[in-house]
Amino acid sequence: MRDVVTVRLRVNGVQYERVVEPRLLLSDFLRESLGLTGTHVGCEHGICGCCTVMVDGLTVRSCLMFAVQSDGAEVKTIEGLAEEGKLHPLQDAFGEHHALQCGFCTPGMLFTALEVLRENPRPTDREIREGIAGTICRCTGYHHIVEAIKAAAQRMAQEPK
C-alpha cells in the first residue's frame, strides 16, 4: 500500500482537500491534482524559479516543497494574482513593457518581482536585478522585465493601499 496523506489548504482563496502521496511535489499537486496549470515546471531542482508561488505570503519554489507541507497553508498561484478580473499592476506593467515572450517563466517571475517590491517599494535597478536573479528567463534578456518592475513600483506607490 502506498502511504497517503490528506492535505487541506487554501489556494487563491479556495479551500481544497485532497488525498495524496507524501512525495507529491507541490508543483505537481497544483498542476495535476488541482488543475492549476499556470504554475510551470522548468527544472525541478530549485534553480530556474519558474515554479515560484506564494506560500503564506512568501515566495517558494514549489518543486522543492512536498504538497503535504502546505497543509493548512494559504497558497497563491498565478491564477489568483489578478483580482476580480483586474490585472495586478505588475501583470499590467509586464504587458506594457514587453517583459514576457514565451511566458513560461512569467508566473514565477511575477511572484519573484512581487516580493521584491513588497520588501523594497522603490528598488534601484541593481536591487531589482539581484532580487529576480533566482528566476531564469531565456527569452527577454531581462531588460524589459526590469523596466516593467520599475513601472509597477511607481504605479503601486501611487495606488491607495
Partner: peptide
C-alpha cells in the same frame, strides 16, 4: 500576453 500573464 493576457493569457500568459494570468496562467491561462
Amino acid at each position: 500576453d493576457k493569457r500568459l500573464l494570468t496562467g491561462k
